[in-house]
Write a protein that binds this DNA or RNA. Sequence first.
DNA 1: GGATATTTTATAATTGATATATAAATTGGA
DNA 2: TCCAATTTATATATCAATTATAAAATATCC
Lengths: 225, 225
Amino acid sequence: MLIYILEDDDNIREIESYTLKSNGYEVEEFVSPKSFYNTLNNELPDLIILDVMLPDEDGLKVLEKLKSNFVYSEIPVIIISAKTTELDRVKGLDLGADDYLCKPFGVMELVSRVKARLRNLEKEQKFSYFGIELSDSERSVFVDGGKVELTYKEFELLKMLISKPKAVFTRETILAGIWGYDDNLGRTLDMHIKTLRKKLGDKGKYIVTVRNVGYKLEKSDKDET
Amino acid sequence: MLIYILEDDDNIREIESYTLKSNGYEVEEFVSPKSFYNTLNNELPDLIILDVMLPDEDGLKVLEKLKSNFVYSEIPVIIISAKTTELDRVKGLDLGADDYLCKPFGVMELVSRVKARLRNLEKEQKFSYFGIELSDSERSVFVDGGKVELTYKEFELLKMLISKPKAVFTRETILAGIWGYDDNLGRTLDMHIKTLRKKLGDKGKYIVTVRNVGYKLEKSDKDET
DNA sequence: GGATATTTTATAATTGATATATAAATTGGA
DNA sequence: TCCAATTTATATATCAATTATAAAATATCC
């Protein structure tokens, strides 16, 4: 589990970082929004810890940007701030923060709140849909009991679709979630849909194209079995 | 959104209940774990607010039971407690609570933290009107329980109309909203209204032409059920 | 460096949107 | 009540946009 910390105070940042690392998390530290944004473009963390009072840019501004861009909006954000009034907390939470911790904070509580936010991700996820079974922890896929070898992108794609069968995922959502793309040019996604369908055999047709929108996983009533 | 409150103190429970209700949530109040469990068997809430010090059974015990049973474990639980030390908070969170709020709490913060927990669930939109059902996330439409396949424009059109039944949408509004047109020339809209009516079958006549203005979705009194 | 995975490019196939022409319905006025 | 004007409905053929596919090029991983 990868955590990004954006905090300009060296002392506090090091306390946070040390605490989380000793609890088994991978941590990247950032002093300014600028370097934070740069790294964010390369790799997405599982959680972000955000200070409010930063030198260049208000932490709440950073929060707003994160939550308004669908590439980042699903990443949990915990604000840690010296601004401690109820109004401050409400502001932060209503802007989309997932938790708000006031300075000075206890390191045990920090860990517990981080754990609480990551709980859903960390537990073993298994999905199944009409003969297609996917285990996240094993990174394995079985179709009608037979193992199917998928590449990284194919697996991520199927995982996204099977995580919520029948729900339509737009091309943008898929490209953002799996590729980290903001803009959609080529036919890369089509390509992976094609190979994934092929590898799923009969069940390949459960991946349904929703023209002008994206794709979904859905077994039509007509399909036997 | 349905919220269950388990809290034995009448004053506090009423404050919580009143606050949440006035923010648009549906609330059920429980004084004892026993009645709480009974109702839980009948209907699952979207969120649970839990007091720690209860007469019969410790609130943390209740929490443990909830989080160890997969039927309930996905429901977010917010603890509200007079036990306010860091250790208390850590205990609650580590047992699986999704948030921990200390008494005395501010009602605004309560609402913000409830919102934060429900944020992911709330965005699913479903509309229905006299046998016509539309799910936005699935991009599906059912008429009298039978699935109807709509094209992109047809779906957008029906979504607009069903989002506010009986309200008249002018041709300009529709063309601007769905086509992005500023000016209205051809018969494109009529065309799509036609195909949409056809696909809705019997219910097609619920799309009413308002001459010189536009269209609306409305079942006339004459139409049998 | 070789095998595999991924992306790009080019082209084909498919589907849905639109324009045009015409028919039908509605309205207001004689 | 009928007629003319206006607006809306319908049918079809064409066009445009989107998606699928195949093959080649590039990147990535042992």
